[in-house]
Amino acid sequence: MTKEQALITYATRMGDNAIVMAQRLSEWVGHGPELEEEMAMANFALDYVGQARMFFSYAGELDGNGRNEDEICFLRDGWDYGNVLLLEQPNGDFGETIARLVLFETFYSLQLEALASSPARKLAEIAACAIRESTYHIRHASHWLIRLGDGTDESHRRVQHAIDRLWTYTGELFEADQVDRIMQAEWEGPDLTALREQWHRQIDALLSKATLQKPADGWMDSGGKQGHHSEHLGYILAEMQSLQRTYPGANW
């Protein structure tokens, strides 16, 4: 794999993460625990759609096949999607959505920070832009994790369960494959081993503030980055891509 190919795949994966997260967060619109939180979820979703567009457009430019953001987003099947498994899991209750946001965003902001100094200039620019959004997401979601963890017995139980359930998907975040290794070697991409340590330190601190227990690192599920997904992604794509698939070539 050339370093250019790795960069294209990497940018596409970033876009895949963003759009899958946007789809999941969008499901909260009209159904949140409080109106203000529906606004917040929609805000996050909107940020992610914006990021997906930037990553996909960038991947399309690099690849030179003239594919635009929509073709990349709507005309690929699941095995070509490289989002991590954590993000395609169903929302669960509000606590689980918050737990996922915290687990992912803590990783994502570290990833973006590393990428912000990449010699791949456009990627660095997108990362720098996304960091600002991510920082606010972490702030909002972390406070919620603390409120739920240190709130009532019920909320504590629910959010602890969410963390336990999602933990098995966190290993994949730090599992470097060939694309990650080329990114690190050639494009100053993140060192996932070092990033993992930082992530654990931040998550430890947050969990303890939220009076939550950190699950043990047991068996970790993975494969999303390489296109080996859970059953959930198919439905996300079926829904998202339905118009583009039913009316091929139409303009919207």
Binding site: E36, M39, A40, Y136, H140, H143, R147
Partner: peptide, 9 residues
Amino acid sequence: MALDHARDL
């Protein structure tokens, strides 16, 4: 939360 909500709204 009040600051977050004010910001979002």
